[in-house]
Design a protein around this nucleic acid. Structure first.
Length: 381
RNA sequence: GCGCAGGUGGCAGAGUGGUCAAUUGCAUCAGACUGUAAAUCUGACGCCUCCGGGCUACGAAGGUUCGAAUCCUUCCCUGCGCA
């Protein structure tokens, strides 16, 4: 399934290919998030034009949205009109956090930004799985059901159902949650049908070294097809966590860093031996008015772009930049709530991150990853 | 010229005797967003501040009142209608 083409001489970075029945993914690669089997405001053609090779959809949200229709669901590839693009589905484990303690603690999975107002925890976690509350009542999702749903969704790569914890959880809680995630890992392996779908196990453990190592050792020894590293991080702790963990995850299997990230995170991850990433940043932030460039993020809604006749990034080959749409026009569109702005900037951001990964791959193959990393990080403002 | 309606912070527009430095929206400024309940959310937005508060403000000038953006008088200006 996973073929390593080149190992970097100075780090654990590697360039490779993930082979699936839908096609290949060149790694390192960035999965674009399409939660409801749709990348918000971007069409299939636009995704492909923006060099997308990998997409991740969501089990929890699709399960609830499809309801009864799940049994006759045509599969994520047909639904997305992307028969030859590799698609993953997340298990719903992240929603245990995002709808649960993430809300209660008012935090995201990477501690460092501003805290939000605390709100109601919509989950109830038990040994068997998790009760989620929404406007229609309570829904129980556990490891076995997540596997069944993911089989029906038909992605190429699926994830074990885990408990993603909050960065504010203490050691005792993290340890307890880790136990559940490990027990659920077994259930996922047992429940998975014999199909071409590849199942990734997930390492948890928060920011605690012994828990992370214990988890990586434990999950890494199980017969998963690949591994995800999930859960919470401190913004400055991510490199350390990866360092603790990566050693225990078999070299010959692909490693995915769940829900990450930003430019710096990608270089850090690749350097530590990560093959694939996924993050909402390119698409969500695009809809919120932010475009990514080699220098970092710019907020197109700001007044300083009022008269800016330049494209987002000179030399960018994305649809928006290539057709010469200036920042001032995008700004106007955002100001007038024209949805097309979100589409154009989404395309730009997707293209940007996919291109960045492409350059990272090339640099590894040409044995100059470190050099490329340093020059890229230097450009960030 | 007469009649009517108005003049409120960058704009629009509430408020019509005290709890009003003044609701709200827009604009502006700053920030956030990391396995998407987010095309979203948060904060600032008269001036000064030792962050307790202080000062100047609702077209202008007077006046009534313990107290006025709010009431009265005059003036200036705007819109509509009639000449």
């Amino acid at each position: 399934m996973f073929e390593i083409l080149q190992n970097d001489k100075d780090s654990r970075a590697r360039a490779g290919i993930i082979h699936t029945s839908s096609g290949d993914v060149e790694t390192p690669s960035y999965a674009i998030v399409g939660t409801h089997a749709e990348v918000r405001s971007v069409s299939p053609d636009q995704l492909l034009q923006a060099k997308t090779q990998l997409i991740i959809a969501n089990t929890y949200h699709l399960w609830l949205t499809l309801g009864e229709k799940l049994d006759s669901f045509e599969g994520v590839h047909a639904r997305m009109k992307l028969p030859n693009t590799v698609i993953m589905t997340d298990s719903g484990g992240f929603q245990v956090f995002s709808l649960g303690f993430g809300r209660e603690h008012g935090v995201g999975k990477v501690l460092g930004g501003e805290k939000k107002k605390a709100s109601e925890n919509l989950t109830r976690i038990t040994e068997e799985g998790v009760f989620f509350t929404d406007e229609n009542g309570e829904h129980f999702l556990g490891p076995k059901l997540s596997m069944e749903i993911q089989k029906k969704l038909g992605a190429d790569i699926i994830f074990a159902f885990d408990e993603c914890t909050s960065p504010e959880h203490d050691y005792v809680y993290q340890k307890e949650a880790l136990g559940r995630t490990h027990r659920w890992a077994h259930i996922c392996l047992e429940s998975k049908s014999k199909s071409a779908q590849k199942l990734y196990g997930i390492v948890q453990g928060g920011i605690f070294e012994d828990l992370r190592k214990e988890s990586a050792k434990y999950i890494g020894a199980l017969p998963f097809d690949g591994f995800g590293i999930g859960g919470s991080f401190g913004e400055k702790k991510m490199g350390e966590v990866l360092e603790w963990v990566i050693h225990y995850l078999p070299e010959e299997k692909p490693r995915h860093l769940l829900g990450i990230g930003k430019i710096e995170d990608l270089f850090l991850g690749v350097e530590k031996g990560i093959d694939t990433f996924d993050c909402v940043i390119p698409t969500r932030e695009a809809r919120h008015g932010s475009a990514w460039t080699t220098q970092g993020r710019i907020d197109l809604k700001k007044g300083r772009y009022k008269d800016d006749a330049q494209v987002i990034e000179h030399g960018c080959g994305c649809e928006a930049c290539a057709s010469g749409i200036p920042k001032k026009q995008l700004r106007e569109m955002f100001k007038s709530k024209d949805n097309e702005a979100g589409t154009l900037v989404s395309i730009h951001n997707i293209f940007f991150f996919n291109t960045l990964m492409e350059k990272i791959r090339t640099s590894i193959k040409e044995n100059r990853f470190n050099e490329f990393k340093n020059e890229s990080l230097k450009k960030l403002t």
